[in-house]
Design a protein around this nucleic acid. Sequence first.
DNA 1: CGTGTTTTTGACTTCAGTCAATTAAAGTGG
DNA 2: CCACTTTAATTGACTGAAGTCAAAAACACG
Lengths: 254, 254
Amino acid sequence: MADHDDKTLQPLVRKLLTLAPLSDEDQAAILALPHKARALEAAAYIVREGDTPTHCCLLVSGFAMRTKLVGDGERQIVNIHVSGDMVDLQNAMLGVADHNVQALTKINTAFIPREAMVDLAFSRPSVGKALWIDSLVEGAIQREWVANVGRRRALPRLAHLLCEFAYRLDAVKIGEECNYKLPMTQEQLADTTGLTPVHVNRTLKVLDEQGLIRRSKRAVIIDDFKRLAAVGDFRPTYLHLPPAASEPPRRENA
Amino acid sequence: MADHDDKTLQPLVRKLLTLAPLSDEDQAAILALPHKARALEAAAYIVREGDTPTHCCLLVSGFAMRTKLVGDGERQIVNIHVSGDMVDLQNAMLGVADHNVQALTKINTAFIPREAMVDLAFSRPSVGKALWIDSLVEGAIQREWVANVGRRRALPRLAHLLCEFAYRLDAVKIGEECNYKLPMTQEQLADTTGLTPVHVNRTLKVLDEQGLIRRSKRAVIIDDFKRLAAVGDFRPTYLHLPPAASEPPRRENA
DNA sequence: CGTGTTTTTGACTTCAGTCAATTAAAGTGG
DNA sequence: CCACTTTAATTGACTGAAGTCAAAAACACG
């Protein structure tokens, strides 16, 4: 449970600060939320479709994914989450979960009682606003994914996804080499892009052959981000990142 | 502009009441929001990608769509909206619009100043909660669309979409014939499902031949909703409809 | 070092896309 | 209400991107 100088929830504060300003008291109130830390293995379920969650889960470290199963047993990964993300606020707010949330890697989580979270959101408008904005940004990402899966061919579709990951893993350095460790198998990439594992493999190979990415183990190395972004038709507007973050080095007017 | 017994915003009250309870004062406060009514022709833009909206638009009557353009000029329709929907709260809250919102049919709208809307959301928690839940439900729909476009074949994909429309247009009557007027051309259905117009045409024909739907003009008639839902792998959980609505006739325990 | 997963590759199939022409509907103005 | 124009729906013949099946090679790890 929570004790006063517990820093478990720090990633949440960090994340929300990128979305809206928070006073010191707001931040303290977040850190003081009751919670229970829990470590989970890769592939473990955080929430299952049909559950009525009593807690909402903060992803403290590692990666998680939202998954949906369709009739014939196929799976679609509908979003990926990183440290600091509230991974099932929606399920907690909406009652019954309409999709699964699973660990993608080994993760550390903090489970916060639903009521405590909701009370905080409504007693501290700045916190509520940040959480609301977070929901809206996630919606924006979902819309881009619909367009990506619906209207882009395999090559730009994968390129787009790799660009998005670069931003969300905070690995974009325009003009320099950027690289990150992609914690997904090709099968998971297939479930994310709506392709088959075989086709993902072939498409990655083409991206590699064209010099758009390099791979070693599961790391992705991008020598020329702009070129990959051009192929992937990627523009980061929809991520609604704070203006300062990782964008072109300089900006005269703060 | 708003006058006191103006009922223009009534559809918003009706919609929000399905999401969270609202006191009489809450409802009055919503109806009293300053706003400007505007009629728009089909295909007119409400917001364009890149805009920084100063107002947020309520769809009073008719249908609207969210669209994204991808690099090669193709279009993806990422969501459809009906009367009572706040059609660009996200754009207003997030600053710069990351997609277009367009009239799908002739529509009537009410433009509410961004500030007034935000103030109302934070001064009246019940209203804020309803708006937040609305954002979350829209996110849930977007996730289902990712799965639909990513992992279902043309036939179930279209069937699924037709089932969703039946629910959202409140036309579902289990056990009876249900029908609704679909305000979209086959080209727009193609942009919604990520298919080509030709393939949409052929797929509709198959649905028709298999007795799953009938068509006259642009009306869709579904004789056996359960059968269409089975083909489309459709389960309405993700719409998070209020328990009472249009579901199986009876429920013992309210 | 062996066992199970993941990646890679080849040969073949299929679902959906493309191109192009025809028919049907929906408007429009006289 | 009818010719005239425009937009939408339909159909056929052909192409191509991605899927399927199956096997081999490369890793990961206890």
